[in-house]
Write a protein that binds this DNA or RNA. Structure first.
Length: 430
DNA sequence: AGCACA
């Protein structure tokens, strides 16, 4: 025998697996229908539907391999094909041995929907039209819209998950009725998932966001610039709306800025509840959440314009975010919810050191005793707020790729699904 | 109608 080992398998055939791969499903197909389909042949332990680019594929996992074989065998010789909603579905053994359910927030029912409006003219859809469309299913509390690489998106907040679900079920994949749109506009299709949010933060009524529960909310100042709803004060300086969540962007990022680094930097001013990092405009940005606005104000004043590393590297620019509570869906190397104790994914190292309860009077500098650098807020900090004494911030120049003694950065580079960030950041779907 | 992720 010449070639024994890695013979490419015959195209489109797979060795038996407990997991079956289904295609040509109607996109409305639900997990319940998949279970119904598989139940006659055995115990369905897991399913996944709306898979693939067209969301018309699915997986069924049986408890036992023989059950999967039974189903394949049955339909292989049956005169009636397997059907869902009258549509013939094609089955085969999956090339995977188990279904991994990356249940993201998009799958977990909630009262807020993430709506992606598809179509060439998507961004011309007004918030009023969206309000009209979604109001058919119940009282719409708030809507925010924003533009992402995924396109034009909106978050639509209902009272409860049931109402949101009815709207999602009815509208997902459908197009906005033509009579609601100006004549010249092309079709606009709605793609809907659940958002991780439960209460949107709407500070102004504007063409981009509305709070229908509060008609007296002030109308947005006409000149809203950049990310931090800035108004102009009497002195001509920008007045920003303070928030407990800071938006930090990092300029001249010659050296990697990790979640742990940010956590340490911002923990100097108080307990950091959540951090989410994401790429924006080719640079790195992060949202840092404190329990209260006072702490955020102190941190912003202290850190704005300073550099994480000597030599002008990784300069921080900080503004207030419009968020008040970040929605962290998964703890990974880009985002973390530090308020959840002993998160499975939580990594050792710095986190471990800082796991001591970080409670202190709001507005007071957090004395992070565990980290040994909690000598108050960097009141006297000049240009180097981060250059504390415990070698954590060994200047990159002197020790480029090495860890400082005692430091163990997480070694795994898990590329878990990026977390989904909030409304104005990125509510997934990038 | 052909294998999942943001």
């Amino acid at each position: 025998m010449a070639s024994v080992s890695s013979q490419p398998q015959f195209r489109y055939t797979q060795p038996p697996s407990k997991v079956l791969h289904l295609r040509n499903l109607p996109w409305e197909c639900t997990e319940e229908e998949l279970i119904e389909l598989g139940k006659p042949f055995g115990k369905v332990v897991n399913t996944k539907c709306n898979v693939g680019a067209n969301r018309n594929q699915a997986f069924i996992e049986f408890a036992d391999l023989n059950q999967a074989i039974a189903m394949i065998s049955y339909y292989a010789s049956s005169s009636e094909p397997a059907q869902v909603r009258g549509k013939t579905v094609y089955l085969q053994y999956s090339n995977r041995q188990e279904i991994v359910n990356n249940k993201t927030a998009a799958d977990v029912p909630g009262n807020v929907l993430l709506v992606t409006i598809e179509g060439a003219d998507a961004r011309l859809v007004s918030i009023d039209v969206l309000h009209l469309v979604f109001s058919a299913f119940g009282f719409v509390h708030k809507i925010t819209t924003f533009e992402k690489t995924a396109g034009f998106q909106a978050l639509v907040q209902f009272s409860d998950a049931e109402t949101a679900t009815s709207a999602k079920d009815a509208l997902d994949g459908r197009s906005i009725p033509r009579y609601l749109l100006p004549e010249h506009m092309g079709p606009c299709t709605l793609r809907i998932t659940y958002s991780g949010h439960s209460d949107l933060s709407v500070k102004f009524q504007s063409h981009r966001s509305r709070d229908y529960t509060n008609p007296y909310l002030p109308v947005a100042p006409s000149a809203v610039e950049g990310s931090g709803q800035a108004m102009v004060g009497l002195d001509g300086k920008r007045l920003e709306t303070e928030s407990n969540v800071l938006l930090a962007s990092i300029e001249n990022m010659q050296y990697a800025v990790t979640l742990d680094v940010l956590h340490m930097v911002f923990s100097a001013f108080g307990p950091v509840q959540k951090i989410a990092m994401f790429d924006k405009n080719g640079g790195l940005q992060a949202l840092i959440q404190y329990p209260d606005t006072q702490t955020a104000v102190v941190a912003k004043e202290a850190l704005e314009g300073h550099c994480i590393y000597d030599g002008g590297f990784c300069k921080l620019h900080i503004s207030y975010s419009r968020h008040t509570d970040l929605s962290i869906k998964v703890n990974n190397d880009r985002s973390r919810d530090y308020t959840i104790p002993n998160t499975p994914n939580a990594q050792p190292s710095i986190l471990g050191q800082q796991s001591a309860p970080m409670v202190g009077p709001p507005g007071q500098p957090y004395n992070g005793s565990q980290t040994g650098w909690g000598s108050g807020p960097p009141a006297g900090v000049q240009s180097m707020p981060m250059q504390m004494h415990n070698n954590v911030y060994m200047p990159p120049g002197s020790m480029p790729q090495q860890m400082a003694p005692g430091m163990q950065f997480p070694s795994h580079n898990s590329s878990q699904p990026t977390t989904t960030l909030p409304a104005y950041g990125s509510d997934r779907a990038q």
